[in-house]
Amino acid sequence: MAGRAEGELIAGFDVRRAFGASVVLSGVDIMIRRGEVVALLGGSGSGKSTLLRALAGLDPDATGTITRHGRSAVVFQEHRLLPWKRVAANVGLGLTGDVPRRVAAALAEVGLADRERAWPAELSGGQAQRVAFARALVREPDLLLLDEPFGALDALTRLRMQGLFGRLRAEHGFSALFVTHDVDEALLLSDRILLLDGGVIAEDIAVDLDHPRTPDHSGFGVLRRRLLARLGVPVLEEIAP
């Protein structure tokens, strides 16, 4: 455990990134500690995904100091499974050791134990994204980096996947940084919300709500209105049923 000062898993200092003349990140400071789930919230084009890619080490043109401790794994908005490999081979990609047993366990955890031999093209969108989660989980990450992981799913599948994420998180205790533009999703799943605006972290908000959370939880609405207002969405008076 040496070198993991204060349980720090990933830290970015003065992270900057510009695409041509347009500056997207202008000096972001960010730190994720062991055990916490952090939502990275922001409007479209605010640079959320850019920041996540920089933290994941996928953007060689981003500048700044990024230090990582422990293992990390990435889940993208699209499942990004290799179409020419069966589900099990996709999950076990790049693994060594007792791969079949670990793959089977990871697939069972996402409820797809019986689809080991399927091709990705035979899966529904939600199933494919669950396989992508299994592919990340099987690496036993300390930190999960998720780029709008539920963004491409239909509303019902998204709710189910959010529930699955909560269960997996409770079981494995990994930390997570997930990008989202969905205020409700951020409030349901995270311990802390970082609001990205103007190329920097504009707000750092702790979410002190009990689990399991629901949108009709007391305190949920207060935070929701505050975040939406901060994102520039005027919140109308709730219409009584």
Binding site: L58, V74, E78, R80, L82, W84, L93, G94
Partner: peptide
């Protein structure tokens, strides 16, 4: 390119990415 990137996050070396992603993808 996104599949190559995903393979990278799975810890595949350049050679392994060519073998598992680029060559089957160009078949």
């Amino acid at each position: 390119e996104r599949l190559v990137e995903a393979a990278r996050t799975c810890g595949l070396s350049t050679l392994a990415r060519v073998r598992h992603v680029v060559l089957p993808g160009s078949l």
